[in-house]
């Protein structure tokens, strides 16, 4: 998003503001700058207020985690005991590892199938490919809950709920439609001539995907990876049902189970929540532009 940095009072107020009833904001005359500055001040404070609302959970989690349960009830004092006992209450290391494993495997599958399908739907159309594409993308609208029972029955009958496999496959299947949609949209943006040039240069189609299209798809791959990572890392339902062995629970599920039990101390839960939220937050802040791109790629911009 290339925007010029906001300049001082001479900057024309970007138009299209419902609250600005002062009339057209075509370049402001200096006489009106005071009013404009006041308006900007009010806006700034408003944004700070919204920021406070949005950041409240982090504030709550951090402060609470530095209390004991008793301190949390009274609201006085501070302690790091919930951090020191966190590891004993929750197998946090194992759960982080589980989350990582499951995320990595699911994302790997999603990437492989969505890249190849996206390339096929955009550059290697076959008879009926448009229909297959629409059906695949339509699967995006099916909530897991609506097929939860048969899904659970199938996966457990195959004996896949006893290890990571079942959850990984379900995550992969649920993530594939949107990922395929993103990859297809992305590859459509590549000129057909690029593929033709590669073919004239002597590549087969699979080799064109591997040597020409794939290196160009890195931004889209990043988008899919980040979106799916956050999605899977933060998911509850699949991990809850398709991982029967508690030792294989990912961190989000582990926390949810503890929380629903209502016996665990709130400060420890909050410490655990912070730990669980950290990886996703780091990924979010680090790859924000890929997320934004992914969110809006469907709009065709």
């Amino acid at each position: 998003m290339a925007r010029s940095a906001p300049t001082e009072w001479t900057a024309p107020a970007p138009p299209g503001t419902p609250v600005n009833v002062a009339g057209p904001s075509v370049p402001l005359a200096p006489a009106r700058s005071r009013r404009s500055r006041a308006r900007r001040g009010v806006l700034f404070l408003l944004m700070v207020a919204v920021a406070a609302v949005m950041l409240y959970p982090f504030y709550f989690m951090i402060t609470t985690s530095f209390h004991t349960e008793a301190q949390y009830q009274t609201g006085h004092g501070s302690s790091i005991s919930s951090w020191t006992t966190l590891g004993q209450t929750v197998p946090i290391g194992q759960q982080l590892l589980n989350s990582t494993l499951i995320c990595a495997a699911s994302i790997a599958i999603i990437l492989v199938v969505s890249i190849s399908a996206g390339f096929a739907f955009s550059k290697l159309q076959f008879r009926g490919s448009q229909g297959v594409f629409l059906a695949l993308v339509g699967a995006m609208m099916v909530p897991l809950q609506s097929i939860l029972i048969p899904e659970y029955v199938n996966v457990s009958r195959l004996g896949l709920t006893n290890n990571y496999t079942g959850a990984i496959l379900v995550y992969a299947a649920l993530g594939t439609p949107f990922a395929t949609f993103l990859m297809t949209t992305y590859f459509r943006g590549l000129p057909d001539e690029l593929i033709e040039a590669a073919v004239v240069d002597g590549l087969s189609y699979p080799a064109t995907l591997w040597r020409v299209a794939l290196p160009l798809a890195l931004p889209a791959i990043a988008t899919v990876t980040v979106l799916q990572f956050v999605q899977i890392w933060d998911d509850l339902l699949v991990g809850l049902l398709f991982l029967q062995n508690p030792a294989e629970r990912p961190i989000t599920v582990g926390l949810a189970v503890l929380a629903s039990g209502r016996t665990t101390s709130v400060p420890i839960l909050m410490a655990g929540s912070l730990v669980s939220a950290l990886p996703a937050m780091v990924v979010y802040l680090g790859f924000q532009r890929y997320l934004v791109r992914g969110l809006t790629l469907g709009v065709g911009k």
Partner: peptide
């Protein structure tokens, strides 16, 4: 690839 011809595209199609 068997024809041994080279093509220059309108939009250049550079990698």
């Amino acid at each position: 690839r068997g024809r041994d011809i080279a093509m220059v595209f309108q939009n250049y199609a550079l990698y």
